[in-house]
């Protein structure tokens, strides 16, 4: 019980508040990934991207867009995740340009490109493509559903 408080401050909550957490500049507060503002924070202050260059708050979305976004979140959550184990093949997340640290939460795309989970989820909400190879993520997912 005693550790609950410590966990919640170093984990999600302080990291989600971008500017607040960086002001506490001690390095252990900065955590593994610099892009922590993804699905959890979007759920708190919903801002969505019906298409890559369009940003809207949830109140401005049409019903059709809401369905599209709900489907997209579902799809993203089907992509495998893991923690970085020091594998030499993927060294740096090309989205934030920060080297992976052992224990970072990562997500693997069907093309086997790996990113910080927070970084790639933010991108996938805009475009379902791999930033590195442009492989569409949704088509690959659908085929993997069929074969399984």
């Amino acid at each position: 019980m005693g550790n609950c408080l410590k966990r919640s401050t170093t984990d999600d909550i302080s990291l989600l508040r971008g500017s607040d957490s960086v002001r506490e500049s001690s390095s252990d507060q900065l955590g593994p990934s610099p892009y922590q503002e993804t699905l959890p924070i979007q759920a708190a202050t919903p801002v969505y991207h019906p298409s890559p260059s369009v940003t809207r708050s949830v109140a401005q979305l049409t019903e059709e867009e809401q369905v599209k976004i709900a489907k997209r979140i579902g799809l993203i959550q089907h992509l495998p995740t893991g923690t970085y184990d020091g594998c030499k093949k993927a060294r740096e997340c090309v989205i934030c340009m920060v080297e992976f640290l052992v224990g970072d939460a990562v997500r693997y795309l069907p093309c086997m490109h790996t990113y910080h989970m927070a970084c790639i989820d933010d991108w996938l909400m805009r475009s379902l493509t791999c930033p590195s190879c442009m492989e569409p993520v949704d088509a690959a997912l659908l085929t993997s559903y069929e074969t399984n």
Partner: peptide, 15 residues
């Protein structure tokens, strides 16, 4: 590089 937003941190690296 503390005190920077993620975009600024990446831009600083690119610079």
């Amino acid at each position: 590089m503390a005190g920077m937003s993620p975009s600024e941190r990446r831009l600083q690296k690119e610079l």
